[in-house]
Computed example of a mutant assay.
Amino acid sequence: MNAQELRAKTPDELRNELANLKKEAFNLRFQQATGQLENTAQMRKVRRDAARVKTILNEKANTAE
């Protein structure tokens, strides 16, 4: 997902996306702990996507003030 796609979403949609990314990150950490994770790069991608969503949410909050 890229920043342009995220900027087109509403803050509520972004919060839902962030919640989904956090759940996915938890599942990936669990898989890694049990030795079932095959693609370790996926963890990095999910973390970066979550950070990207947080950044867009903060940008939207700052422009609303």
Rank of each mutant, 00 (worst) to 15 (best):
K45M: 14
L57H: 06
D49S: 14
A33I: 00
R47Y: 03
G35P: 01
A19W: 00
N2F: 06
E38H: 10
E5T: 14
E24G: 05
L28E: 02
T63D: 14
R52H: 05
L6M: 13
T40K: 14
I56R: 11
A64W: 07
V53N: 03
K22R: 11
R48A: 14
E17S: 12
T63R: 14
A61I: 08
N62S: 11
R29Y: 09
Q31K: 12
L21S: 07
R48L: 11
A50R: 10
A33W: 05
M43D: 03
I56Y: 05
R48P: 00
A25F: 07
M1T: 10
A25G: 08
G35W: 01
N27C: 01
N2R: 09
L21H: 02
A64D: 11
N39C: 00
D49G: 05
N20C: 01
A61W: 05
E13F: 03
L14V: 01
A50P: 04
A33M: 05
Q4G: 03
R29V: 07
D12Q: 09
K54N: 08
N39L: 07
N39H: 04
Q32L: 15
K23S: 09
T34L: 06
M1R: 09
K45F: 09
A3Q: 15
Q42P: 03
E38K: 14
D49R: 12
R52L: 13
L37C: 04
E24T: 11
N27M: 12
L37E: 03
L14K: 07
E13H: 04
A25P: 00
A51T: 13
N39E: 11
T63F: 09
L37I: 02
L37G: 01
Q4R: 14
K54S: 12
E65L: 13
V53P: 03
K23W: 04
T34G: 01
K23G: 06
A25R: 13
A50N: 05
L14C: 03
R44Q: 12
Q4N: 15
R44S: 13
D12R: 12
M1Y: 11
G35K: 02
